[in-house]
C-alpha cells in the first residue's frame, strides 16, 4: 500500500518550459518507424499469419473444422489420390473470418494444417475462401 503523491507546486512558467524541453529533446533521437513496403519489418520467429495445408498429410479427420471458433474452416471434397485420406475431404479456409487463433494447427494430429509467416495476402479477389489446393500453394503462386 503506497499513497501516490501529487506533484509539488512550482513557479508557473518553469514547469511549462521543462515540459517543452522534454518534448523537444526527442528531436535528436532516431525515428522508430519502419518504411514498410521497401523495408520489411523484422518479424519475431513465432509470428504466424497464413494457413497452409499439406495435402499428402491430411487424413480428413475434421478436427480442425470442429475446433475452429468462427467456423472459418469447412471440409471440401477433393478428387485426389491419398491412401491416408479415404473420404477425400480436405479443409478450406475463409480468411475473411479467420482470427489466426492457431487452434487448427494445435489440434491437427498429423501436422498437415499449419500457419506460417506469410502475411501479405492483399490482392484483388472474388472470395476470401481458399480451396484446399490453394492452401497448399505459396501465397505468390495462388491465382484468384
Amino acid at each position: 500500500m503506497i499513497e501516490v503523491k501529487e506533484p509539488k507546486k512550482k513557479i508557473p512558467v518553469v514547469g511549462l518550459i521543462s515540459g517543452m524541453l522534454t518534448v523537444s529533446k526527442y528531436i535528436f533521437k532516431k525515428p522508430v518507424t519502419v518504411q514498410y513496403p521497401e523495408q520489411k519489418p523484422e518479424l519475431p520467429d513465432r509470428f504466424r499469419f497464413r494457413i497452409f495445408l499439406k495435402l499428402d498429410d491430411c487424413v480428413g479427420c475434421t478436427l480442425c473444422e470442429q475446433v475452429c471458433p468462427n467456423h472459418s474452416i469447412n471440409m471440401q471434397k477433393v478428387d485426389r489420390e491419398n491412401p491416408r485420406n479415404k473420404r477425400k475431404i480436405y479443409p478450406d479456409v475463409n480468411f475473411g473470418t479467420c482470427t489466426v487463433c492457431r487452434n487448427c494447427q494445435e489440434i491437427c494430429p498429423t501436422e498437415a494444417i499449419y500457419l506460417d509467416k506469410e502475411f501479405e495476402t492483399a490482392r484483388t479477389r472474388n472470395s476470401f475462401t481458399y480451396s484446399p489446393e490453394e492452401l497448399a500453394l505459396k501465397e505468390n503462386e495462388v491465382i484468384k
Binding site: 506533484p7 514547469g15 511549462l16 521543462s18 515540459g19 522534454t22 518534448v23
Partner: peptide, 9 residues
Amino acid sequence: FNMLMKNDI
C-alpha cells in the same frame, strides 16, 4: 510522466 505532470495546464 514529466510531459504530463510538469505542465501547469
